[in-house]
Amino acid sequence: MSKQIAVLLLLGWGLLACAQSSKPFAGASLVFQWVEGTPLTSLMLQAGSYNFGGGYGARANVGIGVSPNFLELGADFLLPFGAGRLLPYGGFGGNWVGLGALNFFGIRGLAGINYSTASDAGLFAEAVPTLYLASDATGIYGTAFGIQIRFGVNYLF
């Protein structure tokens, strides 16, 4: 039940970012991830904004693992560099990955680029290195390093 509430809160936060912004977006991506050499592939849905005003943005995302099965929740602050059709950006955030009995709590940075293909769509690619704190039912047992490579499309409102 708590995972469902967390998913709804994050999506609500992302939709709130969409509603209060001049550059809101919603989209999906294919994510290739490696955590300490273990490959994880997922489909991710996201919502947010590249511009709240003041030169920063935010997004929330929910990922569903396809190989193996897992759930991921995350939120990021985005720092766009410039404006126009080709928009590089950086940022930082956090996420949680639930993989069976294992839980990974991550702090991450990101670097990406968005290319606006039309007035209402954009293609993006990004790299997301993450430092995880791993735990299971018996407690915290260590750290792990992971990296995500994301390719996706955003619908710009």
Rank of each mutant, 00 (worst) to 15 (best):
A60V: 07
N114S: 12
Y50F: 15
G54F: 03
N69E: 06
F104L: 14
N51Y: 13
G98F: 13
G109K: 00
Y50H: 11
L87H: 08
P88N: 02
L99N: 07
G122S: 13
A83V: 12
L86D: 07
E126Y: 10
F70A: 04
G53I: 08
G94C: 09
D76H: 03
A83W: 13
L71C: 01
E126G: 13
Y89Q: 03
A101Q: 14
N61D: 10
I64T: 05
V66R: 09
L123F: 15
I107H: 06
T117P: 02
G112L: 09
G94T: 15
S67E: 14
N61L: 03
F52N: 08
G74R: 00
G54C: 04
V62A: 05
F105A: 13
V66A: 09
L73W: 11
F70V: 08
S49A: 15
V97P: 00
G48C: 09
S67F: 15
V66P: 00
G98P: 01
G55H: 03
A83M: 12
A75D: 00
G90E: 03
N114V: 00
S116L: 14
A83Y: 14
G100E: 10
L87F: 03
E126T: 08
A127C: 09
F105E: 13
L71A: 03
F105D: 12
I113R: 02
G55D: 00
G65E: 11
F124S: 05
T117W: 08
F70M: 04
F70I: 05
G82R: 08
G109Y: 07
F70R: 05
Y115F: 11
L79F: 15
T117I: 14
I107A: 15
G122V: 10
P80R: 12
G84S: 03
A111C: 11
L102G: 08
L102C: 05
G91W: 06
A127Y: 06
F92D: 00
G100N: 09
V97E: 08
S116R: 15
N103K: 15
G100W: 09
F70Q: 01
W96S: 06
G53F: 07
A111P: 08
W96V: 12
G65T: 09
F77S: 05
Y89C: 04
F52I: 04
A118M: 07
